[in-house]
Simulated scan of single mutants.
Amino acid sequence: MNPIQEYFYRIEEPDRSTLLFLRKKILESDPENITETLSFGLPFFKYKKKMLCYLYYSKKYKKHYVSFYHGDRLDYPELLQEGRKKFKILLIDREADLPVEFILRLIEEVKQFVRA
C-alpha cells in the first residue's frame, strides 16, 4: 500500500468512502493536469505541479474538509477562511449530499489562478 492509500485506510467509514469518491472525481476532472501527492502527511492535489487543494480533518468542527489554495480569491459563503492567508475550506457534512459539482467548479476557478 502506498502512503496515499494508507492515509485513506486510516479513516473510518463512511468518511473513507466519501473522501475516496471525492478524490476520484477530482483526479478525473482533469487527468492530464491534476496529480496527487502526499505532502505534510496529507493528500494534496496539484495542477501542473502547483498547489490546488488538499483534504484534511477539522478537529474544531469534527468534519473532513477540502482546502483550496488561492481560496482568499474565492467569494462563496460556504467557504471558511478563519485566519488562513491563502486557503479557504469547505466542510464536508456526512449528513448531506456531497456537493461534487460545487467542488469541481471551485477547482476550475482555482486553476485560473495557478496557470500564471
Rank of each mutant, 00 (worst) to 15 (best):
85 K>F: 06
56 Y>N: 15
67 S>F: 09
97 D>A: 11
15 D>Q: 15
94 R>Y: 00
29 S>K: 06
6 E>W: 04
99 P>T: 00
60 K>N: 13
88 K>H: 02
32 E>A: 11
71 G>W: 03
37 T>G: 05
106 L>H: 00
10 R>W: 04
81 Q>A: 06
87 F>P: 12
62 K>N: 14
31 P>D: 01
83 G>H: 05
49 K>N: 11
22 L>E: 08
116 A>V: 09
92 I>N: 02
10 R>S: 13
106 L>Q: 06
40 F>Q: 04
86 K>E: 06
35 T>R: 03
64 H>L: 12
99 P>H: 00
116 A>D: 08
11 I>R: 11
49 K>E: 09
62 K>D: 14
32 E>I: 06
79 L>E: 01
115 R>C: 11
73 R>T: 07
55 L>A: 07
116 A>P: 11
38 L>C: 05
85 K>W: 02
32 E>P: 05
109 E>K: 09
77 P>V: 13
23 R>C: 13
28 E>G: 05
45 F>K: 01
55 L>K: 05
100 V>G: 06
32 E>C: 10
66 V>H: 06
7 Y>N: 10
87 F>E: 11
17 S>N: 15
3 P>Y: 02
113 F>Y: 12
4 I>D: 14
80 L>Y: 01
56 Y>M: 13
77 P>I: 13
9 Y>H: 15
8 F>H: 08
24 K>Y: 04
33 N>P: 05
40 F>N: 06
105 R>H: 04
77 P>R: 12
72 D>T: 03
65 Y>I: 10
41 G>V: 03
77 P>T: 10
81 Q>T: 01
41 G>N: 03
3 P>M: 12
1 M>R: 13
76 Y>M: 08
93 D>T: 01
90 L>E: 00
107 I>E: 02
9 Y>P: 13
